[in-house]
Design a binder for these strands. Structure first.
Length: 283
DNA sequence: AATACCCTCAACCGCTCCGAC
DNA sequence: TGTCGGAGCGGTTGAGGGTAT
């Protein structure tokens, strides 16, 4: 039988609020560190036993609790039944505390997973389908202005989610810009990329086609536009990004009425972009 | 027809932010 | 003022479908 005697239980219990602490224990027999952790409300204990000593030091570290306790929870793709349960619950109760939703809705998912599923897939105001040209142009402009702030960008695209915009950027727009010799990170013409496109490297195997992916790999880590660290020395004159901060255009304003509050994050609320009916980015 | 490779996108993970206490 | 916990964000992963060989 495992027995554990804490010499100073009150101070050990106080450690619940500490990041680190040390507690002296006397072990009469073997003991379970996990049980100790449990009793103290911490998530893990690192302990070191000195050979032959009954008295030992136990380092208690309050480790970050995993966002979702993986135990007994479903992961991966959502089933139709799960979707329906979540939809029914949110229609009835609204988007209340995400942490409590799974249990209340009878779902074996973590709250985070529910939130993501709702926001990215189940929300009724989502606009499914391909991005149109205007949306694509707007994404490019917004990315030039905001960098990888996908939620802010998505906030200006009614019915689109940050995840959707991010995926579309990575799978379509990024590639498109690179093929035009434009660095997708700083939206400037990239000499290295341009020359690679014009003079593709000739390998021993000439039959091998020139792969755009190689460029992406080689030049994936370019400067970050959001940090304003564009390669000014090598950059050509700025492209006409035609970005201005202004009251949303009528089209955006109209559609905004249907916007879910999710699209109006604190910071995006301050940012309204002028959206001309025709978006011309590159001259 | 079989296999390998590529692409897309839903979902996850880990971190930061922020309000409540 | 510091701590805690929930929400949100951005990067990454991997399943599955499509395409090339």
């Amino acid at each position: 039988m495992d027995m554990l005697l804490l010499l100073d239980i009150p101070s050990a219990l106080k450690m619940k609020g500490l990041l680190r602490g040390v507690v002296m224990i006397v072990a009469f027999t073997s003991f379970s560190a996990n049980n100790l952790a449990k009793s103290m409300g911490v998530h893990g204990i690192a302990l070191s036993l000195s050979e032959g000593l009954k008295e030992t030091q136990v380092k208690v570290e309050r480790m970050r609790k995993p966002s979702c306790d993986v135990k007994d929870l479903n992961k991966g793709a959502w089933s139709k039944q799960e979707d329906q349960k979540l939809i029914d619950y949110i229609n009835k109760h609204g988007e209340v505390c995400w942490r409590t939703i799974p249990q209340a809705a009878g779902l074996l998912r973590c709250g985070k997973s529910c939130r993501l599923r709702w926001i990215n897939y189940l929300r009724p105001d989502l606009k499914r389908g391909n991005f149109d040209e205007d949306e694509e142009d707007l994404i490019i402009k917004l990315h030039a202005l905001l960098g990888n702030r996908w939620s802010l960008i998505a906030g200006r695209l009614p019915g689109r989610t940050d995840n959707e915009v991010k995926n579309y950027w990575n799978s379509h727009i990024r590639r498109k810009l690179i093929s035009k010799g434009i660095d997708p990170n700083n939206h400037r013409l990239n000499h290295k990329i341009t020359s690679l496109i014009q003079n593709p490297p000739m390998s021993d195997d000439n039959s091998k086609s020139f792969d755009l992916k190689d460029i992406t790999k080689n030049h994936g880590e370019v400067s970050d536009v959001a940090s304003g660290e564009a390669e000014s020395s090598s950059a050509l004159p700025d492209l006409n990004l035609d970005l201005s901060i202004a009251v949303p255009s009528s089209s955006l304003t109209n559609s905004k009425n249907n916007l879910n509050p999710f699209h109006e994050s604190n910071s995006s609320r301050k940012l309204h972009l002028h959206s001309p009916s025709t978006l011309l980015l590159f001259q």
